[in-house]
Design a protein around this nucleic acid. Structure first.
Lengths: 297, 297
DNA sequence: TGCCTGCCATGCTTGCGTCGCATGGCTGGC
DNA sequence: GCCAGCCATGCGACGCAAGCATGGCAGGCA
């Protein structure tokens, strides 16, 4: 006896008509009639009385119906559970992350994910938050690790946002710098220092986020990546604002100072997916991994 | 997906070997191999890792196994319950009967049936023949004990009619009545007697059935049930026509006389089911019980 | 190292099962 | 009486299931 026959039986019972069930199931009436007859022969009972207009469940038919429904429901559960497992046994996971999240947080979470689910193909794209969100909406990414300065909150309606952490800004100064012994420093105390940034002036997101009104830093050096920036700082060519996420270990030739809370609004870091879209088990699993990684620091 | 495949899957999982499962299931190894492969293709997951010596359940395979067992167990339950229905181990039997058949014939047959098949749930509804037949057609009753006067034969085409007995009419007279010593009496001999009936005159089905043309009985007393009617007769207030079925025992203060065959057309009593409809074993068994009870008088 | 056995996968072939189309029979409504 | 609705069934085509035969791989033993 096959579960398909039980589905047909259930549909006929619901409609009280072989012809109507055949219509719904996209069969001819004759095929359904024969399927019911075969099921009756298999079970050795008559399941329906054939009336002039339709069919009526017999006692054995009434006995079978709840069982049929239970079996079909169970098989639905099977399919759902295997779908969930399948999502982690194969497939792809396309991730985007903003630059400083790519220093440690995201790579570590991805490495753990790959250890657990080696069959899932991973890809990681770096970008700035606005571009990453576009990728999400376009379906080119499954998940993006993004950040938002306090003055530019993310659109909570179009995205599901999982808060990962609040990111602090640090100041990198060379070990011999006059402020090297401090723990916390104010921006005003750096007014005479040259800043090493990723881009010139107001274009740099870090500088813009940290900039109180009227403060105009001197920028003599622009370096694209953190190796270059921190190298310049260590050589005494200037100081730099550094997101905590970008620091995997404190280099021996640098000192990292905290910015005073009044000078450095805290950036919030989220893992974003598109609201209302099916989320694969892999995405769910990576979300959990990122959350754990953020907690572990 | 068919339940047979689940049984094969379960057997392979138990043995940890396709070849051993094939042996138990009386298939070749190749057939079982292909059935597992088909199930895997159907579900979109790998259920077994193929080892040099046998097979091992994968994660999806381990997920499916308890579900497979539950579905197969459920289907076993289906088979058992339907077997029980087929063999009278369960189910319901809904019976209807016309009033005088409920005095002794039908209750006795039902009592015997319940003694033999206590798991079958019984219900009994009293009604007049036309209403009972409607209940049959509507599927609200499985069997009805009905009667038909000779001038109103039942529709033999829509119903299967099992003839149970021909019901005779008797005359109840008080023990001191002038005709009490007789065995048989003619209606004309009762012309001067007052009749006790269930309703006035021509409305009473018994009076109408027994009434020869031109015979106009005097009706002084109307009593609804047989206790009342026979009580009045015993008290000498009149005589009454009594269906043989209504008499469970001859009361000590009454004499029951037969009506002469020319005066009393015999009513036929049938057990009716709907023609062309599946008849459950319970119905068949009750038909036999009613027949036996009718013969036993 | 070579041979043998165990075990699963797969090609080829045959018979069975399923289903569409066409048709027949019955019932109920107009 | 005719028509429509509805279920059952014959015929034929196609797909599926399973046996036989064979291939490939791994492990054990002489």
């Amino acid at each position: 006896m096959q579960s398909h026959a039980l589905d047909v039986f259930r549909t006929v019972a619901r409609h009280g008509s072989i012809t109507a069930a055949a219509r719904e199931l996209r069969y001819t009436q004759s095929a359904v009639s024969r399927q019911i007859a075969a099921l009756e022969a298999d079970l050795g009972v008559v399941l329906f009385d054939r009336l002039p207009r339709g069919v009526a469940l017999t006692e054995p038919g009434r006995c079978l119906l709840p069982h049929a429904e239970a079996v079909l429901e169970r098989l639905d559960t099977v399919h759902r559970e295997l779908d969930a497992l399948r999502g982690l046994g194969a497939g792809r996971l396309r991730v985007g992350a903003f630059p400083t999240a790519m220093a440690a947080l995201v790579p570590r979470a991805l490495a753990a994910f790959r250890d657990a689910h080696p069959q899932v193909a991973l890809s990681l794209v770096e970008g700035r938050t606005p571009a990453l969100l576009e990728r999400l909406l376009a379906g080119d990414a499954d998940l993006a690790v993004v950040t938002a300065p306090p003055d530019q909150p993310l659109d909570g309606g179009r995205f599901d946002l999982r808060h990962l952490l609040d990111e602090r800004l640090l100041v990198a100064v060379p070990r011999g710098h006059r402020l090297a012994r401090r723990r916390t420093v104010r921006l005003a105390e750096l007014a005479d220092d040259s800043f090493v940034t990723g881009s010139t002036g107001a274009d740099d997101p870090l500088m813009r986020a940290a900039m109180p009104p009227g403060f105009r830093p001197r920028i003599d050096i622009v370096a694209a990546d953190w190796t270059g920036k921190l190298g310049c700082v260590a050589a005494g060519l200037g100081v730099a604002l550094v997101p905590a996420l970008a620091v995997r270990a404190t280099p021996a030739d640098l000192v990292l100072l905290r910015l005073h809370p009044d000078d450095a609004p805290v950036r919030q870091v989220y893992a974003a997916t598109v609201a209302g879209r099916h989320r694969s088990p892999a995405v769910d699993r990576l979300l959990d991994g990122l959350t754990a990684q953020a907690r572990a620091g």
